[in-house]
């Protein structure tokens, strides 16, 4: 099995350690990720799409046209990229006029997109290969009490994403349980992290994530798992900011789902670059007998 890997912007250019764990996990699973030259920004569904839908469609269609279409087409580690690429497919296939209009523009650079590149989120692929994931576990994540944050764009709009229940999802819970960790329910599990509104109102964005942290702390979880780099930045970067602003004392380790899978597969924290997290997971990992040399 192989996929063309679409990295996007945030992960490779700001959080490359997330890419490291992702690549390792898929290598272990025997799922080949092909690097393709020439991808641009997806572009951001909470940024460019909001100000210029046509530009968003055009650049998205250009990216989709680059896939060599191995047996799985495109995989991405980022929920935003997945939403954009699935969304561009949706809009182009829904209306031939849109498809023609975009292809007219793409023609200027000698490209054309037929609307047929399949797109998958990496968690989608993990869930589909849950048995393989299980077979590769060498160190079950005992003692990890995980507050899962699905993130909006992993699920919604369901008509475009077409994966898992938009309000009552199960896929990441199942993966977390398969790893031997415990999924802890919390009141605001399905709420937005607030990352997209930081572009227009930082205080509001902070308030949204603060509420999530409060809810997570009450739940007794000892870490967070998520699948979107925008959410990751919101969760990992904003704790210090909130602590400064509100005199709070958040120290909740934030893991990317691929990092947890990689840990269960026996990769060492230092191989995964966990030291690059702003909230150091060191204490938690030590207490759970995972190598602390990060």
């Amino acid at each position: 099995m192989s996929y063309d890997i679409f990295l996007g912007c945030v992960i490779p250019a700001r959080l490359p350690f997330l890419e490291a764990s992702g690549r390792k996990v898929f290598e272990k699973l025997g799922i080949k990720l092909n690097d393709i030259e020439g991808f641009s920004c997806c572009p951001d569904p909470t940024g460019i799409e909001q100000i210029d839908h046509k530009t968003w469609l055009t650049m998205g269609a250009r990216n989709l046209s680059l896939s060599k279409r191995g047996n799985g087409s495109i995989i991405s580690f980022c929920s935003g990229c997945v939403e954009t690429l699935k969304g561009v497919n949706y809009f182009m296939n829904k209306d031939n006029k849109v498809k023609d209009e975009i292809n007219k523009i793409l023609k200027k650079i000698g490209k054309n997109y037929d609307g047929k590149t399949n797109v998958k989120h990496f968690a989608e692929v993990l869930y589909e290969n849950l048995n393989k994931v299980k077979e590769n576990i060498v160190k079950p994540l005992e003692g990890f009490k995980v507050a899962i944050h699905y993130g909006c764009h992993y699920l919604r709009p369901s008509e475009i994403i077409n994966w898992d229940d938009p309000f009552d999802p199960i896929t990441i819970d199942e993966i977390i349980k398969t790893l031997g960790a415990e999924s802890i329910d919390y009141d605001l599990k399905m709420e937005c992290c607030g990352n997209p509104v930081e572009k227009s109102d930082m205080d509001l964005s902070l308030l949204m994530i603060d509420n999530k942290f409060k809810s997570i702390q009450q739940s007794g979880a000892n870490c967070v798992a998520l699948v979107c780099p925008a959410c990751f930045q919101q969760f990992d970067f904003k704790q210090r900011e909130l602590n400064k602003k509100n005199n709070s004392n958040y120290k909740i380790p934030i893991f990317y789902l691929s990092e947890l899978v990689a840990l269960a597969f026996g990769y060492k924290p230092e191989e995964l670059g966990l030291k690059f997290h702003r909230v150091q997971p060191k204490t938690l990992l030590e207490s759970l007998q995972f190598s602390a040399k990060i």
Binding site: P45, P166, V197, L204
Partner: peptide, 12 residues
Amino acid sequence: IWLCSTCQKCVE
């Protein structure tokens, strides 16, 4: 309108 977090809850 810029305060919309695009969480798409309303749409669902």
